[in-house]
Write a protein that binds this DNA or RNA. Structure first.
Lengths: 148, 148
DNA sequence: CTATCTGCAAAGATTTTGCAGCGTA
DNA sequence: TACGCTGCAAAATCTTTGCAGATAG
């Protein structure tokens, strides 16, 4: 949190109420809220912060690298704090929507090869895995095999 | 294309004009159009097909596995044909938006491990890489390091 | 024939923008 | 004090839905 303040200052951005409120919320919340979720999560304590500010703030925080944007297939952006040294990816249950995390990632094994072949400079990557969570596997119908 | 017709029939869906038009368009087009792009791409030949049908059709085609949805960080869904035996991922230029493809993917190396640890059943995965393309690296300003 | 599918239009959801006033540095 | 930032409300996108008529099988 102290590092976040310094990073913002260092890049020339101001330390404002909404920015600190949203950073604080993301630091404490479990899960991967979307813009609505952030708005709702801070609304009782900061009722004056509106959706427009939430969107502008997450854009800014993503730009400076303080948060990561998850682009999932149901087209709503979700956000999570980009904790230093933490590298993980997401596992999404297509039945109930639950999002789990996993740490294994061997992307660096192929990263250099991709840079050589494509001549892109690679900055970041996202790996999203879709499937069916233990609860949905056990309990209910398996929607993914319907109509076969 | 013949396989697509059979797959739809086999799963109990009808072979309709819009479905074949959209499949045909995705088969011939280069790139990764969004819904607007598909609508525009078929509009001269099929002016009666509207956006609602485009959305309903891509949902259906994705559900049966005939197309893949790309969820990119600029929150618009993009679509591409899921050609049999083709497994690739995407490299997105954060400066100009260009999308390139690459084939290397060693996800299967960790897939089983993730299934064991998380108890999810894994169906599919997407790997998106963000960076800066050769053209933007050579030519213009590097927006990703602005304000530092 | 009949259940599925489509077209249209309207609604819903999500995200962006303009502008005047506020507040950090 | 000055510029960046915010709040509000309105607009712009993007996507979904209801319903009546069309159509594949």
């Amino acid at each position: 949190m102290q590092e976040a303040r310094e990073l913002l200052r260092r890049k020339g951005y101001r330390l404002t109420g909404p920015r600190l409120a949203i950073l604080g919320y993301l630091a404490e919340v479990k899960g991967h809220p979307n813009a609505q979720g952030i708005y709702a999560g801070i609304h009782s304590e900061y009722p004056e912060i509106g959706m427009a500010t939430v969107y502008r703030t997450v854009d800014l925080l993503a730009k400076v690298g303080l948060l990561r944007i998850l682009a999932l297939k149901n087209n709503q952006a979700r956000y999570e704090l980009n904790r230093f040294g933490d590298h993980h990816h997401h596992l999404v249950c297509k039945t109930c929507g639950k999002i789990a995390e996993f740490d294994s990632c061997n992307f660096q094994l192929i990263s250099v090869e991709i840079e050589e072949v494509t001549r892109f400079r690679i900055d970041e990557h996202t790996l999203e895995v879709y499937g069916c969570c233990p609860g949905c596997l056990a309990g209910s119908r398996d929607y993914s095999t319907e109509k076969i």
